[in-house]
Amino acid sequence: MTQTICYLNGKYIPFDQASLPLNDLGIVRGYGVFDFLRTYQGVPFRLRAHIQRLQNSAKLIGLTIPWSTEEIEAIAQNTLGHNHLPEANIRIVVTGGVSTDFITPLGQPSLMVIVSPVSEYPKDYYEQGVKAITVQVERFFPKAKSLNYISAIGALQQAKLTNAVEALYRNQQGHVLEGTTTNFFVFRGSQLITPKENILNGITRAVVLELAENYFEVVEEAIDYSELSSCEEAFITSSTKEIMPIVQVDEISISQGKPGENTQRLMHLFHKYTRG
């Protein structure tokens, strides 16, 4: 098996030889940001948008990134080029870098790019739909894709106990916000509704909104948990899941337990858009 090559602080090296100092703030404090995307036909999908979101995430947590957008783009492309994969995931990570007192950034962050093969979800997830649960969680810095995934890891462990594929965050006001790694959408009639506030703006979410505006009335507003039972359809989006139909949330059945027509239409449009 061919060894995966990653990028770390100026070097392209085998993945199993890459390491960070033990006083890197990404390790000892979870201080850092990342972004994640995949390729279609070997081309990174909306790479610049992902890098700009990475930069915005860093700005929100006060982490200075010394590399330009173009430099990070080139590093990501070069790392991809060092690996010969038909389709790849690309993970770009910036940590706070080494710290002599284990808490104060010295202004020298670490940059890594990790490439891995794309693994597909089972077809029946898309043909039959999946279950999600809700958990009462409000993310710290929701607009930042930070390294802090403690709440997500715990929520997904809860989801697995009930054979659910995703856990959706619900705030104290009873609004369903987003998933651990996904954005959340519902259909009510011809209205496509998705939350706008207190969420991470997904790149796949943005593509879905672009595709949907020609066919549906797009509404960006809060989704109340109590309204889920009256929604005709629901789905989640992400770089890995693309558009995945949700047919059950907790004990609430949606779309009569099968993917709805509007969701299937968007799935078709997205597949056509990304794969031609």
Rank of each mutant, 00 (worst) to 15 (best):
Q41H: 15
E261Q: 13
L269H: 04
T182L: 00
I103F: 14
V165C: 03
A76Q: 01
E70G: 03
L168N: 02
E213C: 10
I223G: 01
T134L: 03
Q191S: 14
L54H: 07
P105C: 10
T274P: 01
E232C: 03
V247M: 02
I27V: 13
F187T: 00
T95F: 10
F235W: 00
I193V: 14
A18I: 07
V135K: 05
I254K: 02
I193F: 03
K272H: 13
K241C: 00
Q157D: 13
D124C: 04
A18K: 10
N9Y: 11
E70Y: 08
L63D: 04
S230Y: 13
T95V: 08
I51G: 08
R29Q: 14
L106N: 12
V249H: 02
F216I: 06
P21M: 08
A88N: 06
G81Q: 15
E127A: 11
N78W: 00
E71L: 06
D35F: 01
L25W: 11
E232Y: 02
A206M: 11
I13K: 11
G129N: 05
E221Q: 15
E73V: 06
T4K: 12
Y125H: 07
P44C: 10
V218C: 12
A76P: 02
V43A: 06
V218A: 07
I5Y: 08
I199E: 06
G62L: 10
L25Q: 07
E233T: 00
